[in-house]
Nucleic acid binder design. Structure first.
Lengths: 259, 259
DNA sequence: CGCAATATTGACCACTCTCAATGAGGGTGG
DNA sequence: CCACCCTCATTGAGAGTGGTCAATATTGCG
């Protein structure tokens, strides 16, 4: 039970805008009593494995899920039966918020790697937040965070060139790993090339080719799912250079810098 | 004051999954007393006009905004100074939920046409929802709805071909107009071609050409911003046909059906 | 009436998709 | 321990979509 309790504090801590990861804090006036109540609500399960589902599209809303370690992808099954990836979730992130509106899950959530995930029965949580204003505020902030994540996805996926999309994707992951105290430049991708391409609206071959090209250009090193970013600055420039800028830019006379 | 009060009821009504637009209902046990309290919180302003801002990126969170009539676009200013459209909002929809996480607006909201918009000071609303569990639930559902909208955007923008993107965009608008009791097949676009292309991640010329082509194929009639959908079914097929399906499909031997 | 903003159309070419074949790991069974 | 299979990833060649550039409507507004 302890680990989940700790996770929740961790979770709250991360979502507090006044606290960074290096500070121990229980923000928003959440005292031990409230944390204990939360602790009583939360269900801990044994580790889930690659391919396990947290929930499927159409299931009735039961719980929200907080990822303690590991990662999850959410997918939406389209009318034609094809699956589209709509999001990737890492530790401390909450999955299932889409289900509240219609009282049923709109997408499916599939575990990408062995993960520890806490389950919070929504109706219990809602009852608790109704009694603890500070917790209600946390909940609003969490949902707002989800809205911001998705806005970020929209920006990423709406980029014009495949190059920009993949660079943005890698930097997004990088930043999220960094926030978790992990390396911002050396990490494993828990999702397949297929998932990445599907998410970004590209062909899988394009993603593969781009990885190769980025490597040739010295921007990163990649071996299967292990990625090392070597030139973050240049990746950032790729992302921020709107397509119309790219060819007028004086930043790169011709060749991107080799490391 | 009355109009705003009515709008809120309208608003709540729309967000209630058990009620459709033709029923008068005050769901979730929200009695007149609560509605009155809401009414006291809500600020009504005189009509806003094309180009007015509800808020700008970086402004401190003051209020959430509910569109009574008209429409709004939200834009995100990227690192390179370029503006990207991240969403379009129609009547009964709420804008500003992205600001709760960091206590400041992440994107800017710009009015697209003369609009009536209600302002709800967030802190007052939060206080009220803390005291009225049914209203708290409404708030959760509203935020969840926003998450679903954005998920929809991700699916739309992530489609592979420009054709699929624009068809999905038009059908999305159509469905939302229909929900509001307006024509699902005959409507005005309050956003420019530029906004549409920017939102969908396409070149403005591509959008323009597609409108022309759709018209030539008898799928719709378009004159500047006035759109009449003539063959919704075929538009739906375009959307649902993943690119990989499109060329094997026996649905269209060669030419799309002419109306 | 003319300027500015918005939208359409054409020509050309680059990017990215599709199709196809090959390569690399991980797991299972002989 | 190796052969085999299956999945995942890479690479190549050709074709098509969609982007860029440029010119031309069309509309709105002062």
């Amino acid at each position: 039970m302890l680990c989940c309790k700790y996770n929740l504090i961790e979770h709250i801590k991360i979502t507090c805008h006044n606290c960074n990861l290096n500070e121990i804090c229980i923000p928003m006036g959440l005292d031990e009593k409230v944390v204990k109540k939360l602790d009583n609500i939360i269900k801990r399960s044994r580790p889930l494995h690659r391919g396990d589902y947290l929930f499927r599209k159409g299931d009735k809303l039961r719980s929200l899920f907080v990822i303690k370690t590991g990662s999850v992808k959410t997918t939406f099954i389209q009318e034609n039966g094809h699956e589209r990836v709509v999001g990737f979730y890492l530790s401390s992130e909450m999955v299932g918020l889409d289900a509240i509106q219609k009282n049923e899950y709109i997408c499916s959530a599939k575990v990408l790697e062995t993960s520890a995930i806490c389950e919070i029965p929504f109706w219990n949580l809602e009852e608790l937040t109704a009694n603890v204003p500070a917790l209600q505020h946390q909940m609003y902030r969490l949902m707002s965070r989800e809205i911001n994540y998705e806005m970020n996805s929209i920006l990423m996926i709406g980029k014009k060139t495949a190059e920009e999309k993949l660079a943005a994707f890698l930097l997004n992951l990088s930043a999220r790993f960094k926030n978790r105290g992990l390396s911002a430049t050396d990490f494993y991708l828990s999702m397949s090339r297929y998932d990445i391409s599907n998410y970004l609206g590209l062909a899988i071959e394009t993603v593969s080719r781009l990885f190769t090209r980025f490597q040739e250009e010295g921007l990163l090193q990649v071996e299967r799912r292990h990625v090392k970013l070597l030139n973050v600055q240049h990746l950032e420039i790729i992302v921020s250079s709107t397509h119309s800028f790219k060819f007028n830019s004086t930043v790169f006379p011709s060749q991107p810098p080799q490391s």
